[in-house]
């Protein structure tokens, strides 16, 4: 065991190249997210297992009772399940961030002369990729089971675009939680504690008209309801501008409010 160099290159003085742009930094972090997919393909399983279970269980167990036929119910359920998928995805993203902090990886990033938000922009880029992959898988299963987007390819693409925007906005919430909470498991527990009621007390699984009036008014306030309505509308080709704007309200607000907060928390930590 010796340190005899095979070439003096590593120890020779290496000067700093021209500083890269903020976008280049963010792309590098995005590349890291892609590498993670390559090395930890299991994470895909975590991402799509719950939505697949939900789709199958609800469609075949409750579908007939709720909507008269499993086919009709799938048509009703799938857009909301996609919303649920990207939301749960964001929890995993927050967990990943918490893990990186715990391992000290961010100390290294923070001591580099890079754009401070670059690690988060990269995280978001990775999230978008995961939303697309997970969303694609769920949509593929839906199509195989008989889901039919009436608005065709254009409507489907619009729905996917909205889905990614929703995931992007909600992602900030879990980045903040990932920055504040010390352990990845706590991020997960906290995330699902918030998300389960949000997803269930919405119009994702059942028509709110069947609920007691007080719950119906809660559901009407739930942002998940508006997201699901807009998604259904886009798939069906009858979405109004107002519905899409309502669905985007939370993601846009989250981005505007939480992005500066993330930066402040990150600098302080």
């Amino acid at each position: 065991m010796t340190d005899a160099p095979t070439g003096e290159t590593g120890f020779a003085r290496v000067e700093r190249p021209a500083p890269p742009s903020a976008a280049a930094n963010a792309l590098t972090f995005g590349w890291r997210a892609v590498l993670k997919f390559k090395h930890v393909p299991e994470q895909l399983f975590d991402l799509v297992m719950t939505p697949i279970m939900f789709t199958l269980l609800f469609t075949f167990v409750f579908g007939g009772a709720i909507a008269g036929s499993t086919g009709d119910y799938l048509q009703f359920l799938l857009p909301g399940i996609l919303v649920q998928t990207v939301m749960f995805n964001s929890v995993y993203s927050g967990m990943g961030l918490s893990t990186d902090f715990q391992k000290g990886l961010f100390d290294r990033f923070r001591s580099l002369p890079i754009w401070p938000l670059a690690p988060f922009a990269g995280l978001m880029a990775g999230d978008v990729l995961r939303h697309l992959i997970a969303g694609g898988i769920i949509l593929g299963i839906g199509l195989a089971l008989g889901f039919r987007p009436e608005a065709g390819v254009a409507g489907t693409l619009a729905a996917v675009a909205l889905l990614v925007a929703i995931g992007f906005g909600v992602g900030w919430v879990f980045i903040v939680i990932g920055l504040l909470v010390r352990t990845p498991t706590t991020v997960m527990t906290l995330g699902f504690t918030v998300l389960f009621p949000l997803v269930f007390a919405s119009n994702v699984m059942v028509d709110p008209a069947t609920m007691p009036p007080w719950l119906e008014s809660v559901v009407a306030l739930n942002p998940v309801t508006h997201m699901t309505t807009a998604m259904r509308g886009l798939f069906a080709g009858n979405a109004g501008v107002g519905a899409v704007a309502l669905a985007l309200a939370l993601p846009v607000m989250a981005t505007l409010v939480l992005a500066p907060l993330v930066l402040a928390l990150y600098r302080r930590r």
């Binding site: 590498l35 090395h39 391992k103 000290g104 990886l105 290294r108």
Partner: peptide
């Protein structure tokens, strides 16, 4: 740092390339 600040899921080579790319 006191604890190896590396991405454990990545290879050693990828860790170094990642940082080199960040440096520009």
């Amino acid at each position: 740092g006191q604890f190896a600040s590396l991405d454990e899921d990545l290879t050693g080579r990828e860790n170094l390339i990642l940082l080199a790319r960040l440096w520009g």
